[in-house]
Structures are given as C-alpha cells and as structure tokens.
Design a protein around this nucleic acid. Structure first.
Lengths: 197, 197
DNA sequence: TCCCGCCTACCTACTAATTAGTAGGGTACA
DNA sequence: TGTACCCTACTAATTAGTAGGTAGGCGGGA
C-alpha cells in the first residue's frame, strides 16, 4: 500500500540517495547495479530513472556530493567545537568518521573515478579532498602554529589519520575491541609515540 | 611470430597471472573483465580459459594466493633481516610494501570477497591476514617483549601501519614528496610521537 | 635424418545471462 | 486535471563461459 505524501517520513528521492549511498560505499561504483539499488528499495529497476534521469552516473555523483558536503560540515564543526587541543579535535573527528561508512579513498581513486567522465571524476576528487583531507590538515597545521608539534606534512598526516580510521572500521569486524577504544589507542600512539620513554 | 618455448623468458600462464594481478589490484574483482585482461595480454578473451579453466574466480584466487605467498615471505624476511630495532623493521617492511601495488584491505573485505564463494572468501581472507597482518603484528609483539614499547594491541598497530602505507601510495599521486620520505616521516611520527617534547 | 602424432597456445563463433537505459501506460493524490 | 510515482515490456551492449578448430614446436621411432 502506498504511503500518503504527508505521512512519508522522507521523500522517495532521499530514500533512493540513502540506499544508493549505503551500497556504493560498501561495494563501489561498478559492483553495484541499478537492480541492486531497486531491490533494496522494493521497487522496479526502471522506476529509479524517474528520480535520476541521468542514470547511474548522475546517481553516484549526487550521492558523493551529498556525502562529502556532510563530511565537510561535520568535520569542520567537530574540529572547531572540540577546543584548542589537537587530541580533542582528532577524537571528535574520529567519532564522526567511525559513525559513518568508511570512505575507501584507494578504491575511489583507482576504481570508481576512472569509470566516470573526466569532468565528474575531477570534480568528485576535488570535493572529496576538500571534505576529508582539508579539515584534518587544517587542524594539524594550526596545532603546529600553536607549537604543539613541528611536523610540516599536514596533508600526509591527515591522509594517514583517515587511513587509520578506515583500518579501525575493518578491524572492528575481526576484533573484540570497540571502535572507540581502537581510535583512542591509535590517536594517543600517534600523538605521544609508541616507544616507551 | 610465435616464440620458441626455449626462448620464452616466462611462461604464458605466468604472464597471465602478472597481468591479472596488476589489473585486479588496481581496480578490484568486479571492475576487471576477462576482456580487459585478454586485451592487456594481446590475446582473445576465450584464450584465457585455456590457462585457467576455472574462469574468473579461479584466476582471482590464484592471483591472490600467489601475491600473498610473496608478501608473507618478503615481510617475514624483511623483519627478520632488519636487525633488532622496531624502527629498522618497519622501514624494511615499508620499502617492500611501497615497491608493490597497494593492497586495499577495505575493498577486498567489502567488495571482492562477497563476490566469491563462501569457502574461497574465507580462505583468501585468512591468507591475506596471515601474509600482511601477522608478520607486522609479530614485529610489534616482540618489540614489546623486548621492552621497546608497551602497547598490547599488536594487530591494531599492524593494520594501522598497513593502512598508512596505502595512504602513502595514494598520496604519492598528489604530493611532491617521495614515497620513502613519506614513509620515514610516518614511521618516526608513530614511534616517537607527533607532539613536541 | 625425416616423418608422425601430440601437445601447447591460440583462434573464431557462438550462448545465456546480466547490464544500463528507453517507451509508454496506469493510479492515486492534491 | 495535472503530476508524482511506479509499473510492464522492451532494446542494445556487455558479460562470463563453451564448442570446436588450427598452427606449429617437440619428442620418439624408422
């Protein structure tokens, strides 16, 4: 039975974006078929094209755009409202990242982007860079300017932090530690060093 | 013109495994078609089935088996012959890892494995675990037993180290730093801590 | 030394299934 | 009455995989 528009908690188009985002982020662009998405929504494949006339590419592009806009806002917010210490900022960022599907940068760059048109590929790569790397790199940079550390490779640190959070998400499937415990351990190790002093 | 068997530098089957390994590791299981592999070898798609009667699945399984056997040997060797200090062991491991295509564990677990049969999936997951995580985890463990550090989460450290090396490979595409410089920076940061003391 | 059968490596030509996408119709709600 | 949403029914392209044939190097026997 069909829902009345007024009793729909969310629009069908948003539901489509939600479902597609989950599948794309789990399996990547090529591995997800329009049929998979339609099945997950309980709808026929052809019906998807009513909401996304541009087809699979447009769907993927909109999903990534929306997700990256969210990540960017949330990470900037997390860093800004965590106080002046790098450790608290990284903890806040980790809490956001671990509460959402992992962003597999390696797969995005190597598999998903090449399957898209050149301009879409470049745009999404830039958006992802700005949403995930820049807020973290900026936290590392200002911490350095405050004298908390003196490592000049902000982007390297940001990328490596992101990769560590992805590792935590994979590890959570095989380990008994909680995600938060893993993240806390890694962040303190990164900040204070592994070697005993 | 066809090569004489005696003057072939490597068997066609090994060439197939090499080409497939490159493509699979770049793009993942589903994104690579048998046609892609055949094209890259300069051969017709149907000819692949002469070397791998089991088809795409068997090809992928053999590729991963071979790659993981190599990684396991090389990493154990690197750690063993790098002397007693964790730093030298990690540097040796990083040199090996950065000289080979990155192993995207997130993609393997989330995309590639679910496309395989249950038993193949479990076997390859175990092989990958033993080849990549265990040698590194063992290095962290023995370093702890020598008193170099006191972080008990060997596997977490190993996974996170691997993820950092993957991040270096992605970063090398966008940064002007060399892979080795990035790896050195990250290893020293991990060991001695980011925060100024 | 020459010839014959065998095997490796490849080919052409197909099949069945699956893919993204299109055309056009129905139905319920505003 | 129009429109948002979903449907059935199709198409063309691509996919993994099969059937069966061919060219040529190789070893063994006369």
């Amino acid at each position: 039975m069909k829902q009345t528009i007024s009793e729909q908690t969310t629009s069908p188009r948003n539901r489509l974006l939600d479902v597609a985002e989950r599948l794309f982020s789990e399996q990547g662009y090529e591995a997800v078929t329009m049929r998979d998405i339609a099945d997950a929504m309980g709808v026929r494949q052809a019906s998807l094209y009513h909401h996304v006339p541009g087809g699979k590419q447009q769907l993927y592009v909109e999903v990534v755009e929306r997700a990256m806009a969210r990540h960017r806002l949330a990470l900037e917010q997390a860093v800004a409202s965590a106080g002046p210490h790098l450790r608290d900022q990284l903890l806040a960022a980790s809490r956001w990242l671990l509460d959402h599907p992992p962003v597999d940068l390696v797969r995005m760059v190597n598999s998903d982007m090449p399957a898209l048109s050149e301009e879409h590929s470049r745009r999404l790569t830039r958006l992802t860079f700005e949403a995930l790397l820049l807020p973290l790199a900026s936290a590392f940079r200002t911490a350095r300017e405050r004298g908390e550390h003196n490592n000049p490779a902000d982007l390297l640190l940001a990328g490596s932090f992101l990769a560590m959070m992805d590792a935590v998400q994979v590890g959570a499937r095989f380990s008994s530690m909680t995600k938060d415990a893993m993240a806390n351990n890694l962040i303190d190790t990164l900040l204070f060093g592994l070697l005993a002093r």
